[in-house]
């Protein structure tokens, strides 16, 4: 007594097959937006499309993108991290101050900074899973505490709000080569952060789409109770995602340190919202369970193009934030509209 195949085929035909899948890609809205921004600045700004211009744009995109990618993963897993921006500064400060105070090789500072930063991420995730408080509250708390610690400890140890220059210390040049150098690819001068960025996008995409962990991230954000019921270690997934954000914050922090030599302890405040905005423009749902790493990368690219495009067009850079806000609203509306259409055709 199985179902009649004819009736079922009819049902399936009503649902409408492949046509719906393409617009259902999370990053589609962002790609359309990025193309529009590219065309706009290509017309409005001289030098935007020249190699040097594009190199600058990609560099700006990569510094945001390195963080936006793990933040996107976290959001797909259904959580927020407001501490991501200042965590980058914390990571740079730990690295710099440790090396300077201990008069050690800069690589020692880099190595010490890694577990410290990861511990902050772990703290976020662990507190979240233990207390079941909203991640907004917990990471707002971490954000405020880190902001205070960054300033307070830097002043306490060094006497000023910025760290001492470590440019003449041992290991600085090799560390700079890894975190903040220029590389030449086919005649183009590119910042090495672009390599880090693309590597992170590739790794995150692999994890999301091709590993069990990726399946669990989508499920944790999409329906945590259902995921738990079928044996997904929901808490471990969440802690892992926060630790992932911390790992990227470490990379980002080391770049900050080795490209400027000194670190301003008040930096990073507000960047967390830019990472979240990039992820949302890239198609991540605020409620979790949906999004992609590539989308967040495109979101970061839109940020990079806008911030540098305004400079190349010789406009007042004050307009940057306005453009970004408008972009965020437009992209979110576009994404919502696309998704609605995708679901309506079912």
């Amino acid at each position: 007594m199985t179902a009649t195949p004819a009736a079922l085929a009819e049902d399936a035909a009503e649902r409408g097959p492949v046509a719906r899948r393409l617009p259902a890609r999370p990053e589609l809205g962002a790609v359309v937006g990025a193309a529009a921004v590219l065309v706009f600045f290509a017309l409005a700004a001289d030098g935007f499309l020249r190699p040097a211009g594009l190199g600058t744009v990609l560099y700006a995109a990569s510094t945001i993108g390195i963080m936006a990618v793990p933040v996107a993963l976290l959001m797909i897993g259904g959580e927020f991290d407001l501490s991501a921006g200042v965590m980058v500064t914390s990571s740079a400060l730990v690295s710099s101050m440790f090396s300077y105070q201990m008069t050690a090789n800069t690589w020692v500072g880099v190595a010490v900074s890694l577990p410290v930063t990861l511990a902050i991420g772990f703290f976020n995730g662990w507190t979240l899973t233990r207390t079941r408080l909203p991640s907004f509250i917990i990471t707002l708390g971490t954000f405020l505490m880190l902001t205070g610690l960054n300033l307070g400890l830097t002043k306490l140890i060094g006497g000023t709000v910025s760290t001492r220059a470590i440019g003449d210390m041992e290991g600085f040049d090799s560390a700079r080569a890894v975190f903040a150098s220029d590389i030449t690819v086919g005649g183009f001068q590119l910042r090495i952060t672009i390599v880090w960025w693309l590597a992170l996008v590739a790794a995150a995409t692999w994890i999301l789409l091709r590993t069990r962990a990726g399946n669990w991230i989508f499920a944790t954000g999409g329906n945590a109770e259902a995921a738990r019921a079928v044996g997904v270690p929901v808490d471990r997934v969440r802690i892992g995602l926060y630790t992932g954000v911390a790992l990227a914050a470490w990379i980002s922090g080391q770049h900050l340190l080795f490209s400027y030599d000194v670190v301003q302890s008040g930096e990073g405040v507000g960047n967390e919202l830019i990472y979240i905005a990039a992820a949302v423009i890239g198609g991540c749902l605020l409620t979790g369970g949906y999004g992609s790493a590539a989308g967040a990368a495109v979101g970061a690219l839109i940020f990079g193009m806008t911030s540098k495009g305004i400079v190349y067009a010789q406009w007042d850079p004050s307009w940057f934030k306005f453009f970004l806000g408008a972009m965020l609203l437009l992209a979110t509306l576009l994404n919502a509209w696309i998704r609605k259409r995708a679901e309506a055709s079912s």
Binding site: N215, F218, A219, A226, A229, G289
Partner: peptide
């Protein structure tokens, strides 16, 4: 209340 994740 089925154990499924709707968006997956």
């Amino acid at each position: 209340d089925l154990a499924v994740v709707p968006l997956m």
